[in-house]
Write a protein that binds this DNA or RNA. Structure first.
Length: 430
RNA sequence: UCCUCGAUAGCUCAAUGGUAGAGCAUCCGGCUGUUAACCGGAGGGUUGUAGGUUCGAGUCCUACUCGAGGAGCCA
């Protein structure tokens, strides 16, 4: 079994075999340097003409970038090598050639890189993003598990719109119409009544013709839902999770953040928690002050969101939006029914809304009234109404967009780099 | 759907309306420790498509195709 490159440093002076891909080849007259990557790290393999067998020396003359290799040699600590460790090559086998690999270490345009996304993933930067994505997904789930949350997977194929707002992908379900899920929330509410604290985590689909650096057609959302919880409980949980996540990444993903040239400085405030909680009314004031006027009652546009978030050095909660601009299931504020117990979490630096949620309507009659007001078919929501008929309870939850969160944490300029194979308005390949 | 910008070598980009170039990649040669290695040489083009203006179009005009960013909508 080959050793992983990340483990090599501990075996100085010993013989080791690694398997990986050629990142670059530098040739001198009597010495050749191969940088090899195996997913755990990269290492410089040194081939000296005087030390290596002739056939190995010759084999290294025209290796192509991304050729897959098996390299055997002696592990050596050497300050001249990047990372301080290198492999003095004794034997080398080319597992598969990679002539004319399309992606060179030089610059490429977006269109070209997206067409070659399957190969682009091999680059240092993309690999770093994918590692951080994995860490985020794991960390958040472990944290929720620690707090007694049960993961309950919600369906992807659904009979009707969850919120009745955004455009859905329609598909044929044995001569019946079905839609790709845009949220697992409604099903989560059923699960919360069974298990108290639940979350779902999976892909969601929006058939909107959005074409910006913040939009994906298919994206992943983590959606906790808590029985007997209030709006404040939800904000507490969001703040705890996000700040803990930032602390975790600053510690455990430091190397990858360096690769991404993301300064830890930008995340220090968020790591401390203490996210401001302002009302929609206050947010309107902030937007107006920043020269981005809003008509009361309307949801914020992207420029307003950016202006509001720019007033804070860490994510900010905006709560109690006008009832009219939010989904039908939002619980109205008992003290002021024209606003609802909803909350959006806006990330700093123009990354916009990364989470949205709030307290759900738990009263049967009110929910039924809202369905009618929104022209939603009661038949399709029969089961959802049932939840209010038997053992209803105040409950709340939120949905956290993984890609936007990742985009902010990594300081990326487009969400397309946060997901292995992005689905965009104009792109379904590869 | 709307607005703005773009499309030239495999890739990234140059080129007053007047002979289409460079860097990287590729191929050949050189170099004893390189760090996106370096040095020398070579090959590589129906300038997105279709029309138009002009003595002459990569360049100007029209339409279309594809892409990018933004608006709306949202996480």
């Amino acid at each position: 079994m080959a050793m992983r490159i990340s483990e090599l440093a501990a075996f100085s002076g010993q013989e080791a075999t690694i398997r990986g891909w050629l990142v670059s080849l530098r040739k001198g007259g009597k010495i050749r340097f191969l940088v090899v990557r195996d997913g755990s790290g990269t290492v410089q393999a040194v081939v000296r003409q005087e030390d290596a067998p002739t056939e190995v020396w010759e084999r290294c003359a025209d290796l192509s970038q991304e050729a897959s290799l098996e390299v055997r040699g002696t592990v050596r600590l050497d300050q001249r090598a990047q990372g301080g460790v290198e492999l003095a090559v004794r034997d080398l086998i080319v597992i598969s050639d990679a002539a004319d690999f399309p992606i060179s270490p030089k610059e490429h345009g977006v269109d070209f890189l997206m067409d070659n996304r399957h190969l682009w993933l091999r680059s240092r930067r993309q690999a770093a993003i994918l590692r951080i994505r994995s860490q985020i997904e794991l960390f958040l789930q472990v944290e929720l598990g620690r707090r007694g949350f049960v993961r309950v997977d919600s369906p992807i194929l659904t009979p009707s719109a969850c919120e009745g707002t955004t455009t859905l992908f329609e598909t044929d379900y044995f001569e019946q119409k079905a839609y790709l899920s845009q949220s697992g929330q409604l099903y989560n509410e059923a699960a919360a009544a069974a298990l108290g604290r639940v979350y779902c985590f999976g892909p969601t689909f929006r058939a909107e013709k959005s074409k910006t650096r913040r939009h994906l057609v298919e994206f992943w959302m983590l959606e906790p839902e808590i029985a007997f919880a209030s709006l404040d409980d939800v904000m507490d949980l969001e703040e705890d999770l996000i700040s803990a996540l930032v602390r975790h990444l600053l510690k455990e993903a430091a190397d990858d953040l360096v690769v991404l040239e993301r300064s830890p400085q930008a995340l220090l405030a968020a790591a401390q928690g203490g996210f401001a909680r302002i009302t929609y009314d206050q947010a309107v004031e902030v937007a107006v002050q920043a020269g981005q006027p809003v008509t009361w009652g309307e949801d914020f546009g992207s420029p307003q969101e950016t202006a509001i978030a720019a007033a804070f050095d860490r994510p900010v909660f905006v709560h109690r939006y006008p009832t009219a601009c939010k989904a039908f299931y939002m619980q109205p504020d008992p003290e002021r029914p024209e606003v609802c117990l909803s909350v959006d979490l806006l990330a700093p630096e123009g990354y916009g809304e990364i989470a949205g949620g709030g307290q759900r309507i738990h009263d049967f009659a009110l929910l039924r009234e809202r369905l009618a007001q929104h022209n939603l078919p009661e038949d399709a929501y029969r089961w959802y109404l049932d939840l209010r008929q038997w053992g209803s309870q105040p409950h709340a939850g939120f949905g956290l967009g993984i890609e936007r969160t990742l985009s902010w944490l990594c300081g990326l300029d487009h969400v397309r780099e946060t997901i292995p194979f992005p689905r965009l308005l104009t792109r379904l390949y590869p």
